[in-house]
């Protein structure tokens, strides 16, 4: 039972790392990417290849993974950073499908459909992390580090402020000298590099990886974790990742008729997600926003005060051309 729980918490922590990284885009830049399973995958493959060819050093694997993932993300960012909203989703979906095909077919590097086997458990500064308890510690520390990095970027740097300005109102951000393309590109690079660390932890845990762990399904799942937990809050994606990982397992303990157990679990799980989104559209983290004085709520254009015109979202194309002609 303890091993089962440790395993679950390791996986949930890994997912939380990826979801938190994705939140830099969804929650703080206003860019919806469905491709984050790919950067998680680049991290996984980079760690596997490092382990197979260069040794078990965690720090080396992290370094290689983050650089590789950031470089790879340029392929997504160059075409996608010029667009936002649903267009970015579509471009990122196409990118995810192509990259997934590369993962599953580039046999000399990724092992093709059979994947890569024989990955060793990583060592940290020469210390082996053989036990699952130690590995859970590693996963949690990594999650804390990623969250800290995100906190510093978002709350303490001009870059973080600019990204949120771009999220809240791209036109006003441009009028104040912000280059939307450059900012989105930077956000994608950082986010992809951070997401890859989740892949490194994953590869070192399961000893075997193939493309199935990095499919578009996972991309959707990471997005769901961010939105369900609360986009634009630091805790939201972590809560979302743990909820989505642990809730189906918790249902295992529910007293459901055995012949319908599988489908019923799926239905309850799906219904819970729908109800949560209906009741708490700003995510689970939003439930606590009233309790914590400094907590920031989900991003989006400010609500218009009563009796005043809404502060418009981004206006594009012809609407900009003629919009507001006095």
């Amino acid at each position: 039972m303890l091993d089962f729980l440790i395993n679950l918490f390791i996986i949930a922590s890994i997912f939380a790392i990826v979801a938190s990284s994705l939140n830099l885009l969804i929650g703080f830049t206003g860019v919806f990417s469905i491709a984050h399973a790919i950067f998680y995958g680049v991290g996984g493959y980079a760690a596997a290849l490092t382990s197979l060819h260069l040794g078990t050093s965690l720090l080396l694997a992290l370094l290689i993974a983050m650089v590789a993932s950031a470089l790879f993300s340029v392929l997504l960012a160059l075409p996608a950073a010029r667009v936002t909203g649903e267009y970015f989703v579509v471009v990122s979906l196409a990118f995810a499908l192509v990259a997934f095909t590369v993962f599953s077919q580039w046999t000399p590097v990724t092992g093709g459909p059979a994947g890569l086997v024989g990955i060793q458990r990583v060592t940290l500064l020469g210390i082996p992390l053989d036990s699952n308890e130690a590995y859970l510690g590693l996963a949690v520390v990594m999650l804390v580090l990623v969250t800290l990095v995100l906190y510093v970027i978002i709350r303490r740097t001009p870059l973080g402020r600019s990204l949120q300005a771009l999220r809240d109102d791209p036109l006003a951000a441009q009028a104040l000298g912000k280059n939307p393309f450059r900012l989105r590109l930077t956000a994608v690079l950082i986010s992809a590099a951070l997401a890859s660390t989740g892949g490194v932890i994953y590869a070192g845990y399961v000893f075997f990886i193939n493309a199935d762990s990095f499919s578009v399904d996972y991309g959707v799942l990471f997005m769901a974790m961010v939105i369900l937990g609360g986009a634009g809050t630091l805790s939201g994606p972590i809560i979302g990742a743990f909820f989505i990982t642990l809730f189906p397992e918790a249902l295992e303990f529910a007293d459901l008729p055995s012949e319908l157990k599988g489908p019923l679990e799926q239905i309850i799980y799906g219904a819970a997600l729908v109800i949560l989104m209906l009741v708490r559209p700003s995510g689970i983290a939003g439930m606590f926003s009233g309790l914590l004085p400094k907590n920031r709520r989900k991003g989006g254009p400010p609500d218009a005060p009563e009796g005043q015109p809404a502060a418009g979202g981004p206006v594009t194309g012809a609407a900009t051309a003629t919009g507001g002609v006095a």
Partner: peptide, 14 residues
């Protein structure tokens, strides 16, 4: 040179 807009367009989340 910098401008404002007819709508307030503040960055609401910061």
């Amino acid at each position: 040179m910098v401008r404002t807009f007819q709508e307030v367009r503040v960055f609401g989340g910061i």
